[in-house]
Computed example of a mutant assay.
Amino acid sequence: MPPKPNLSFPISTLTYTNLLQSYAHSLLLTKQIHAHLLKSPTLPNPSLFLLNTLLNSYSKSSDASSAHHLFNTMPHRNSVSYNSLISAYLHSGLHYRAISTFIDAMYGHVKLDKFTYAAALSACARAGDLDTGKVVHGLIVAGGFGRGVFLVNSLIGMYTKCGDVEMGRRVFEGSEELDDVSWNSLVSGYERVGLGEEAVRVFVRMVRGGVDLNSCVVGCVLKACSGLNSLLGIGKAIHGFVVKVGLNMDVMVGSTMIDMYSKNGLLHEAVKFFRFMQDRNVVVFNTMISAFKQVKEGTLNELTREALGIYLDMQREGIRPTKFTFSSILKACNLNEAFEFGKQIHGQVL
């Protein structure tokens, strides 16, 4: 973070703007700059640009209350003002307040831009408000914004997160311009509602179409294959593919691969993959240890010992266990022969 600014003397609009942009994520300094601005004899009537910059700083600091108060005191507002207030509500988890602000902007005849619509769609997605999301979609089409990939991706995301994956697919199929985010949104949408086979079909289209793949979409399609024996062969094929393209060392892909094998009853394969990984963090260790919770008393004792060994490896590598780690390993220690070790771990928790 830059050094704390000196606010002991009058400063210009440009300086205020630079300060607010530099300290946008510091709520304390944003409030200090705001207080100094209110007392400034040289700027009794700050410009809309400066007030919008201040409003944006409150938004980035997730202070919806201060953003709301400032917004209400502004003599003039434009789309940037509304965008910043909507974002402030989103950052604070006040999704319906964000939707309400969008509606106010619409009825206030504010010239809405693609960022206003994207923020409104994000609020609808987080609130699960499909009906309002459809209204926003209609406004986007009527305003001539429906073809750009930026809002296409926002629409796909809104529909899939609200559970209407088929409408999300219609938007996807009807768009002239798509990017990797568009494909990722559709794959994750099908995975989210449990339509694993559809997620795999879209993924196959991505591969055949030469779309750039990332750890997010590979993780989603592997998750879609988890617990579905009918998709296990696909999951194994994807395993070979990610090794070929070099994604097998990615932490997200690795943890999802371990989860897929374990949920399909192939714990030995999960352990083999885990041992193959070089970059292992607490998420990877937790995923692997959690896989051993399925071991039942009196069975697979060697795998239970493997779980205890992995926990010890975690300590040797200096990775700090979480509450989830302790919960998982204690459940794996329910076997009689691991009971004493479980008591030792219990002592560490305490």
Rank of each mutant, 00 (worst) to 15 (best):
S185H: 08
K244L: 04
S328C: 14
H137N: 06
G143L: 02
L38E: 09
T42Y: 04
H69C: 12
N52W: 00
K323E: 15
H109N: 15
K134H: 13
V136K: 05
N72K: 14
G265N: 04
K244C: 03
V141H: 08
M206Y: 03
S66W: 09
I86T: 03
K323W: 13
F150E: 14
Y23Q: 00
A291R: 01
L267N: 04
I103A: 13
Y261N: 02
R169I: 11
A118G: 15
V349D: 06
M277I: 00
V211N: 08
L29W: 00
H68R: 15
M314E: 11
V181D: 11
V221Q: 03
G196H: 01
S79H: 15
G174T: 13
L213C: 12
V253T: 05
L195M: 10
M158R: 02
E340D: 12
T132A: 08
Y311V: 07
V110I: 15
S230N: 15
I329L: 05
L155F: 13
L130A: 10
R169C: 09
G194F: 04
A142E: 15
S8L: 06
V204M: 11
L267Y: 02
L54I: 03
A307G: 01
R201T: 09
G148H: 13
L266W: 05
P3L: 04
P46F: 01
K4Y: 10
E176C: 11
S61C: 15
V181S: 10
M314Y: 10
P44C: 00
A120T: 06
F203N: 00
A332P: 08
Y261H: 04
H25P: 01
M74I: 11
H91L: 12
G196C: 03
H268D: 12
T73A: 13
M252K: 11
F273C: 02
D104Q: 15
S188N: 10
V217P: 07
